[in-house]
């Protein structure tokens, strides 16, 4: 007798756990040849709020973590993806990719993890500065994570584009909530399963599926999100998001370059704040107080 396949339930990824949407809603995006991809959770305002709480909690230990350790964790993500590459390829094909394109995208995605793993302990050294002030002070500027970031993953490149958006964010010590591609959500959910078995602490990356148009205004007006990163919003969506973002002056970062095609440290800096620290320097030669 032929074996009955066990079908997968697609869920959200919040704080390292896999809940269904609290709203009980689902949608059924169509894949190749119009075949339904599955019952995908349609996240609600409450789901977003829960993910922000999870991200804020995770930030407290992720942001101050040694960059070297962050680097190893990102590398570990690549290891986990490698082991699941066949599954990603299969899902990309279900979502309409050709086999060649799917294999290429998965390979590039794994390599992208390695690329940003390497940057974790290098961007600070490359772009920080000691500033030669004209007074007896030691003065330096360093990058610090902005905090909790919401990433709107690109609609088309559902794995590589998502990672290209998210990796620079967590490389820099931020935590994030990712809104997966609405029409191609499968890889995002499988990525969550890979992340859960990597060493990435729960809550650093939270993944929501759902309807972008419904979630954007909720994101824009949330008072505990520090920035939003997106790359393929329409002009109207950008404009509304900028207006809603005034609520708490959250930063709106609209990438000029396609995150699927971008390998650069500059997207890391896009979700960093610059902190400048001053301290007096005593001079035994010229004398005078150090304060």
């Amino acid at each position: 007798m032929e074996r009955i396949e066990v079908l997968k339930t697609y869920k959200l990824y919040i704080g390292g756990k896999f809940p269904r949407t609290e709203s009980g809603r689902y949608y059924q995006p169509a894949g190749k040849n119009g075949k339904k991809l599955g019952n995908i959770c349609q996240s609600s305002r409450k789901d977003l709020r829960n993910s922000v709480v999870a991200a804020r909690t995770a930030l407290a230990s992720w942001a101050p973590r040694d960059p070297f350790n962050r680097s190893q964790i990102l590398y570990r993500i690549a290891e986990m993806l490698e082991g699941r590459s066949a599954q990603f390829v299969d899902e990309l094909k279900q979502q309409g990719s050709t086999p060649t394109a799917a294999r290429k995208e998965v390979a590039a995605s794994i390599d992208r993890c390695i690329y940003y793993a390497g940057w974790c302990d290098k961007y600070q050294q490359t772009f920080s500065s000691v500033n030669p002030v004209a007074s007896a002070h030691f003065n330096f500027s360093v990058y610090e994570p902005m905090g909790v970031i919401t990433a709107i993953a690109p609609e088309q490149s559902s794995l590589l584009g998502l990672l290209g958006t998210v990796l620079p964010i967590i490389t820099g010590g931020n935590s994030c909530i990712v809104i997966a591609s609405e029409t191609k959500p499968l890889c995002a959910i499988t990525l969550a399963e890979a992340l859960a078995t990597s060493d990435l602490p729960g809550g650093v990356i939270n993944i929501l599926t759902g309807v972008r148009a419904e979630l954007l205004p909720i994101i824009g007006s949330h008072m505990d999100i520090n920035a939003v990163v997106a790359s393929d919003l329409t002009d109207t969506e950008k404009s509304n998001l900028r207006a809603e973002a005034t609520s708490n002056l959250k930063r709106t970062i609209f990438c000029k370059q396609d995150p699927a095609k971008t390998e650069s440290p500059y997207p890391i800096l896009a979700t960093q704040e610059i902190k400048t620290t001053w301290h007096p320097v005593e001079s035994s030669i010229t004398g005078g107080s150090a304060y």
Binding site: N131, P132, V133, A134, S135, H137, N139, S141, E273, I274, K275, T276, T277, W278, H279, P280, A290, Y291
Partner: peptide, 18 residues
């Protein structure tokens, strides 16, 4: 905070991002 002064306050300089 974008600018933090240790054992000093209200210092400014053109080379120092604010």
């Amino acid at each position: 905070a974008g600018v933090v002064w240790g054992n000093t306050f209200n210092q400014f300089d053109p080379t120092s991002p604010f």
